[in-house]
Simulated scan of single mutants.
Amino acid sequence: MTGPLRAGFIGGGFMAAVHTRASRAARGHPAALASSTPERGAQAARDLGVERSEPDAHSLTTAGDLDIVHVCSPNRLHTEHTLAALAAGAHVICEKPLATTAADAEHLVRAAREADRVAAVPFVYRYHPMARQARAFVAEGELGTVLTLDAAYLQDWLLDPDDTNWRADPEAGGASRAFADIGSHLCDLVEFVSGQRIHRLTARTRTVFGRRADTEVTNEDTAALLVELGNGALGTLLVSQLAPGRKNSLTLELHGTRQSARFEQERPEELWIGRREGSHLLLRDPATAAPDSARMSVLPPGHALGYQDAFTAFVTDVYSAVQGGRPEGMPTFADGLRAARLTEAVLASAAQHGAWIETAPETSPETEDRT
């Protein structure tokens, strides 16, 4: 495949803006966009600098001139839109959650495999250079054996009962909200950086406001988990969309037998390293970083990289994979399926008043996707 990839986008909101910027920065060509109505699609295409609008998702996926489709529609439509894009021969980036049920997520993994298409989910926090550096430290034994971890993803955008969003409607967003939306990111980063799967978990969830505007809310505002990794390490995870002052506070701290490491998404240029005899901040520097971290460092030290840069790095990797590359650590539909299974385990545990649920990964050729 030569020349810029022609990209289509289903959705016209915040995430579509992030995706179109990343596509352009990754040297793709934003060619078409469809939103919930023809009018909204036309306006979003103009606002985001996309070549044309299509009246609906069906028209976009059947247009025949797109190499890749970015699915940024509401959660309940992910399966429908992704299957249509794959059937049309396009590669796909689908926003998380990949699907609102693990069964649908598994269906999408198989469909992508059968179509032999690149299929990716934007777990983009693994694209911060210092998250990759933490991962390298774990893999190289710099931390020693990981014993415990402390992780959280906190936001405040649904703090008040008058705050609402389509995600609060279980028909549109799914049975899980806070965990499926941001807890999935947190678990992906835990497993990616630690190199260990979550093998067991116990969870409690809480829906603080049973109604938002005209919507009856049954999906959760907060979730708290205790997890056990494959090597026996224990960890605590807190997820909330009702934490005053926390805008996008994703943190991961790993405690090993030699030293600790802490990554904070809102301070992405640094990694805290803790030792018994003294601690320090390690600042991003590609000259001294692990190779995979240096690969993400597209700017010199002191020139801050942030969320949009991480998203661009993810899209760049996906576009590379479409053109035959095999980028290290690219999150695929298999990772989206893993997140869907963990989400269902959290809901099952909470429904059983915190019962321990086994979450050891199940892998087979039928449920792996093309990377």
Rank of each mutant, 00 (worst) to 15 (best):
H78M: 05
A16S: 03
L147F: 00
L98C: 05
G13H: 13
T312L: 00
C187T: 13
V109A: 10
A25D: 14
A287C: 02
G354A: 12
F137G: 09
A289T: 06
W166F: 14
E328D: 15
Q196R: 07
T61G: 01
G144P: 01
T367D: 15
R132E: 12
R21A: 15
S279T: 12
E106Y: 03
V109I: 04
C94L: 08
E228T: 15
E253L: 06
H58Y: 10
D150G: 03
V227E: 03
A172F: 10
A22R: 09
G329E: 09
Q308H: 09
T363L: 11
A26L: 02
D56W: 13
R40A: 09
P301M: 08
L282V: 12
R27S: 13
D47K: 06
V346E: 12
A7F: 02
D335C: 04
V217C: 08
P244F: 11
Q43D: 08
F263H: 12
L282Y: 11
L186C: 14
T288D: 06
L342Q: 08
H19Q: 14
F333V: 01
S59V: 14
G144E: 11
A87Q: 13
R21V: 14
A351K: 08
A180C: 04
V239R: 10
T363N: 08
N219M: 05
A152W: 12
A17H: 07
E191K: 00
R206V: 15
F192G: 00
T207E: 06
E368T: 15
A34V: 04
A112L: 00
T257E: 11
